[in-house]
């Protein structure tokens, strides 16, 4: 894809990046001055339930399974969803370790496996958990969804695994995993942003994070300045886009100048 803003593509792109950078930087300053941007923050019921479930898992001496999905970091590998999944995994693991709950993270890519392993180790360190507490990252397959799903199903059938957090880059295999989880596990938190995974969330009967929510869950679980700034930036960008869409729809409906804007608001059906 190549942009063309009347021949001024590079300056326009740099200006856009500067704007997004400012949208992240300004809230960061507010947060650092002790004024978190709570105006547009709403509660995510799924995450409140997660805390209660982790306490229950700790009381029962059970294990937590976490997965950032089937993505990877290389080009076209759905890096943003995978990063969001790892952010959630890190926050959930830290909370679990602070309660003494062992955690296993399963991955479908060697690079994500290395990142997950590192994140678990750091989360354990931050939580001040004892060294003998289980914190394992398992590399189940290399970019092979079927093999990954088969391995993860086996993990979910372990009797000690009673909490299951699947948030990140998931497609159809999410249905297989959530179905097994519904039978084998006491608590599940699910989250996906891909069109192939999202439709299965409502039929899970479990708590879930839909679309953009997977990108903000980390900020809710472990509200650090950078994450809260991201939350505020996301809300502002969303409001701006909402305004643009409304203006565009009105102009296109009225005709005239709308015709000029039509290409900007066109989007192929998913």
């Amino acid at each position: 894809m190549r942009l063309n803003f009347g021949g001024a593509t590079l300056p326009a792109l740099l200006l856009l990046m500067l704007l997004v950078g400012m949208l992240l930087g300004l809230p960061l300053l507010w947060v650092r001055r002790g004024r978190p941007p709570t105006l547009l923050r709403r509660s995510l019921r799924a995450l409140d339930a997660l805390r209660a479930a982790l306490h229950h898992t700790a009381e029962m001496g059970e294990t937590l399974h976490i997965s950032p999905g089937i993505g990877t970091f290389v080009q076209g590998g759905r890096a943003a969803e995978t990063l969001a999944g790892l952010e959630v995994a890190s926050s959930v693991a830290e909370e679990a370790f602070s309660l003494g709950v062992p955690a296993i993270a399963s991955t479908n890519d060697a690079l994500v496996h290395i990142a997950a392993h590192q994140l678990l180790e750091r989360a354990k360190e931050r939580a001040g958990a004892p060294a003998e507490l289980e914190a394992r990252a398992l590399w189940l397959a290399q970019q092979e969804r079927m093999a990954y799903a088969a391995g993860a199903l086996d993990l979910l059938s372990r009797p000690d695994v009673q909490a299951n957090v699947l948030v990140g880059a998931f497609d159809e295999e999410l249905l297989l995993l959530l179905d097994a989880g519904a039978r084998e596990v006491r608590y599940q938190l699910l989250g996906a942003a891909a069109p192939a995974g999202v439709p299965f969330l409502p039929v899970s009967g479990e708590e879930f994070l839909l679309g953009e929510e997977i990108f903000v869950a980390g900020a809710y679980l472990r509200p650090r300045p950078g994450r809260l700034a991201g939350l505020a930036a996301q809300d502002v960008i969303r409001l701006v886009l909402l305004g643009l869409i409304v203006v565009g729809v009105v102009l296109v409906s009225l005709g005239g100048p709308g015709r000029l804007l039509q290409p900007l608001f066109w989007m192929p059906a998913p």
């Binding site: 992240l24 969001a84 953009e212 990108f215 991201g230 996301q234 960008i237 886009l241």
Partner: peptide, 12 residues
């Protein structure tokens, strides 16, 4: 929504 989330995650 997911695209906005991906942009802010990437920029962060």
């Amino acid at each position: 929504g997911a695209a906005i989330g991906a942009i802010t995650t990437g920029m962060r």
